[in-house]
Design a protein around this nucleic acid. Structure first.
Lengths: 222, 222
DNA sequence: AAAATACTGTCATACACATGTCAAAACATA
DNA sequence: TATGTTTTGACATGTGTATGACAGTATTTT
């Protein structure tokens, strides 16, 4: 198995400071929608705290999480702001979140005055492209168990906290939400998580989850 | 149905000329591999003539076309060259192709000296991100007939030539290749194309294909 | 603390599509 | 033109996973 791993291209502290200078801080409570499809894409965001999911809603009301999840330190809302002018997806705070918001014209000034940031933005989008391509690849080639195992591993890497029991993922996602991320049904997620629990590769306590045996999870990824 | 359409963000003629100055022209015959997974990503390409497909190969030898197809006037090979240093996918000439090749360090000079190009590159990647997200969305939500219909419509838009019969798509793709693009099996493509042929939304002559009724095709896209 | 809501577990049924196989047709090469 | 190779067409079988339904269990809200 290819285990390509693009650690999210981190911004340098000085780059973040530049962005902070150009923007203002806003807080969003858990569950709040940060932007919605159809909104004018006139601003970009730097995540200071919290996790954000990017998703679409289909004509028949189904949710699909495209492009996984954005973590603290990452920029978001770049693509449409740079080009299209209108959001094509939703962004929602998975938990309480603090973001730096930079308005489009300010952001453009920033890019023009600091070409290094423009290049960084291009690099970031490059990495995300590859991530998105990897997801397409997974959707086509892997079955649901593999996709779920991969999601858990990715989440533990990005949002995991080491504990005695194992890596704790404290995102409090419902099975429904997980299903949207990997393109399957809620019931399938339920039964697969139980399978993983039985083979002792994960431990679930309430809605907290611990990855205890990533090797075993890896075996599901064909 | 949402019919988001990101026409590939075209480069201005003067921008292309700049890129041409920084690179050299190379021709590839039909079928030739332009770069392969694992290659060092030390150059980017501007397509002058011909179409190029971007694909991956799985551990078990299956091909998956991620991110559709690149057309004349488009840049390719950006993402990894900007960041990662190693190709994660293959690029193959669908038909005879002519490309301008720019080596990485020359490209970086170009970006630094012409911030407008850097911003354009970021925009291009932004558009492709959205395209990739749209594909993920389609993979999750749509069934195979819808995905095939959409592929045909996209191809007619990007590589189509108007004729008396209808829009001609002269890419000479095999059913196998089409299957890789939409994540299905060769047999399913064969039988679906026959269905489309019977309902007279497409006409097939040899390996040339004509879209004669895009409305009917659109109906397959749920 | 009670009531309402949202989430999880489990089953039975259905079906879209993969897979395997084989023959016919088209294409490429000698 | 003849011959090997690739592509297409057709069908029969198998399976992963969706869907729906309902009971039990957590979480919120009142």
């Amino acid at each position: 198995m290819e285990n390509i791993n693009y650690e999210p291209l981190a911004l340098e502290e000085e780059e973040k400071n530049l962005i902070r200078e150009y923007g203002t801080v806003i807080s969003y409570p858990k569950g709040q929608i940060i932007f919605a499809a159809g909104d004018t894409a006139d601003r970009i965001y730097l995540i200071e705290e919290g996790f954000v999911k990017i998703y679409r809603i289909t004509a028949d009301g189904r949710r699909v999480t495209v492009g996984s999840m954005r973590s603290p330190g990452e920029l978001m809302g770049l693509a449409e702001t740079l080009y299209h002018g209108e959001r094509t997806c939703f962004a929602g705070a998975i938990n309480d979140a603090t973001l730096v918001v930079v308005r489009k014209n300010r952001f453009e000034e920033l890019l023009e005055q600091h070409p290094a940031i423009a290049i960084k933005v291009a690099k970031t989008l490059g990495v995300r492209m590859r991530e998105a391509e990897a997801i397409i690849h997974e959707m086509v080639c892997w079955q649901v168990p593999g996709r779920l195992a991969m999601l858990l591993l990715k989440m533990s890497e990005r949002a995991g906290v080491e504990t005695e029991i194992g890596t704790k993922i404290d995102l409090r996602l419902t099975h429904e939400e997980i299903a949207c991320m990997i393109g399957t049904s809620r019931q399938t997620v339920t039964s697969l998580l139980n399978t993983f629990k039985q083979e002792k590769s994960i431990v679930i306590e309430g809605r907290e989850m611990y990855i205890v045996d990533s090797e075993k999870l890896n075996k599901w990824i064909v």
